[in-house]
Design a protein around this nucleic acid. Structure first.
Length: 487
RNA sequence: GGCCCCAUCGUUUAGUCGGUUAGGACACGGCCCUUUCAAGGCCGCAGUACGGGUUCGAGUCCCGUUGGGGUCACCA
């Protein structure tokens, strides 16, 4: 069996939505699982839609995710060029080949005539149909004469007028469609450039693509592709049509409706491996219960036949959980490194960064969660809701908190070794002395230091993180506030 | 509208030879742990869209209904 070759052929629109990335991943895995080649081809024939820097976004996204390509615009390959706009000269010869074989013909009908035709059909109350094939059987002499006169024309393929056209898809199985559903599709436009479908078939053939992995919006046009392969007498690729990634049950993910692109997700603090892992499972499942996959494991376990047939709704909540799992599995050191810029964006004063991050790690689902959680370090609110001191489980309220903090203050003033353990060791004897539960004493400390209820760590952690000076200052502040409130 | 495709918990997915207490994950609820909140551990709630067949037996096969998606360009 020959080498498996797949390709990812994006249009450089400047927006890589996650559905695109998933298609790239599936194509990549299909190749790599068979030790095959993965090719990157840029489909930029629509110059009007060209966006500056869009190709770089494609490169960067694939690279960040480890989806390396063997052939492409930047690395070259045996079938270069890999940018479609540089290949326009190629297609004309193939169109001519089909005309000579009698599989295609020159059509001189103008756009105006086509419009009029459709208008007539509408007026007659008929559904707007296909091209009426007026030029399909023009006498050879007439065609030559009009060509010689330089009359504008397109090249159309002669589609069969009866019978059925069928193809096989690895996911959807055998699909048949009546030939009269198909029209004589245009191969070459008036300006001599190829239509997308035509260019695609020729390119895939020339690049020896064996498995075409693409979105299932192409399922309906695949019979046209089939006709082209048959007209040329080329071997058809294995088709793998992937269902779309949806925003909700009705609509696809789209830039227009403001759905997050891959880049947006990264900016929000989602990790690439977590995004890729989530995408793998969105529309595909292994036969066991494995959920966490490294790229190597994906390659090993991949089977394109297990891709789902129905659309999958993108669930940001599940992605969040997946991301949290990836963060939780990192070492404290790794997490500190990726969290550092986020922490430093809101904390400019000296702190125990390692201790903070150790506490932040299990509390962080995505990196952009961080700033709100640690704001209090540099910006302690002047006032906060004193009912925060009420805790049912520890039997605390404003008055017990006042007592606890008053006991804590002198004990902490005497601490020399200001570490988490040092602070805790100074507090522990008080629990004995007062005959209370740990929480009774330390829960109020956390509130006093942060001014909020959900904090990255208990009272002693917070004290160690923000340092002795700020700790004592905030305890005094809390004592003042509680005293004033009690009076 | 024509044609093509799809349909398992709220979401995602397993169930591919017809026989399962219909499994996992996220979310949700509860309990444990606990110096807050988390994390972690344990338990729970929750599904075969509907209607007909075929069969001893249907999530699985067939037909229909409903719902949804895609596609019908000198766009890609």
């Amino acid at each position: 069996m020959s080498e498996v070759r797949t390709r990812f052929a994006p249009s450089p629109t400047g927006y890589m939505h996650v559905g695109n990335l998933r298609t790239a991943l599936y194509a990549y895995l299909t190749a790599r699982h068979e030790n095959g080649a993965f090719i990157l081809r840029i489909e930029d024939t629509d110059q009007a839609r060209l966006v500056e820097g869009a190709v770089e976004i494609i490169y960067d996204t694939l690279k960040e995710n480890g989806l390396t390509w063997d052939e492409g615009p930047d690395v070259g390959g045996d079938y270069a060029p890999y940018v479609q706009s540089e290949r326009t000269g190629i297609f004309k010869d193939y169109a001519v080949e089909l005309v000579e074989k009698g599989e295609a013909y020159c059509c001189f009908c103008t756009a105006e005539r086509l419009d009029a035709l459709h208008e007539e059909q509408r007026a007659a109350g008929e559904p707007v149909g296909h091209y009426d094939r007026r030029c399909r059987d023009l006498p050879k002499e007439e065609v030559e004469r009009r060509l010689a006169a330089g009359e504008p024309h397109v090249v159309r393929q002669k589609a069969p007028t009866e019978g059925i056209v069928s193809f096989d898809d690895l996911i959807y199985g055998h699909i048949e469609v009546a030939a009269d559903e198909l029209e004589d599709q245009i191969l070459l436009k008036t300006d001599g450039t190829p239509t997308y479908n035509f260019a695609n078939v020729v390119d895939d053939h020339l690049m020896k693509i064996t498995h075409v992995v693409r979105g299932n919006e192409y399922l309906s046009s695949t019979p046209k592709y089939t006709l082209l392969y048959e007209a040329f007498g080329w071997e058809k690729p294995v088709y793998i049509h992937c269902p779309p990634v949806m925003r909700d049950a009705r609509s696809k993910l789209s830039k227009r409706s403001g759905d997050a692109s891959y880049q947006d997700l990264v900016k929000q603090g989602y990790l690439s491996p977590a995004i890729l892992n989530y995408l793998l499972l969105l529309g595909w499942g292994p036969k066991d219960d494995q959920e966490i996959f490294s790229l190597e494991e994906m390659i090993e376990k991949w089977n394109p036949a297990w891709i789902s047939k129905s659309p999958a709704i993108f669930d940001i909540q599940k992605l969040r959980a997946m991301n949290a799992g990836y963060i939780n599995r990192m070492s404290d050191e790794e997490f500190t490194e990726i969290a550092r810029p986020w922490v430093e964006s809101v904390v400019k004063t000296p702190i125990d960064l390692n201790l903070l991050c150790k506490n932040l790690k299990p509390r962080c689902e995505i990196l952009s969660d961080l700033p709100d959680r640690i704001m209090f370090i540099d910006n302690m609110p002047e006032e906060y809701d004193l009912t925060f001191f009420q805790n049912k489980k520890f039997k605390t309220d404003e008055s017990t908190a006042l007592a606890a903090l008053k006991a804590l203050l002198p004990a902490l003033e005497n601490v020399d070794e200001w570490t988490r353990d040092g602070v805790y060791n100074a507090c522990a004897p008080l629990v004995e002395q007062l005959g209370v539960k740990g929480g009774w004493l330390l829960y109020p400390l956390g509130i006093a230091l942060a001014g909020m209820q959900a904090t990255p760590g208990g009272g002693t952690d917070l004290a160690a993180i923000i340092g002795k000076e700020r700790t004592l200052e905030r305890i005094r502040q809390a004592i003042d506030m509680l005293t004033a409130a009690a009076a």
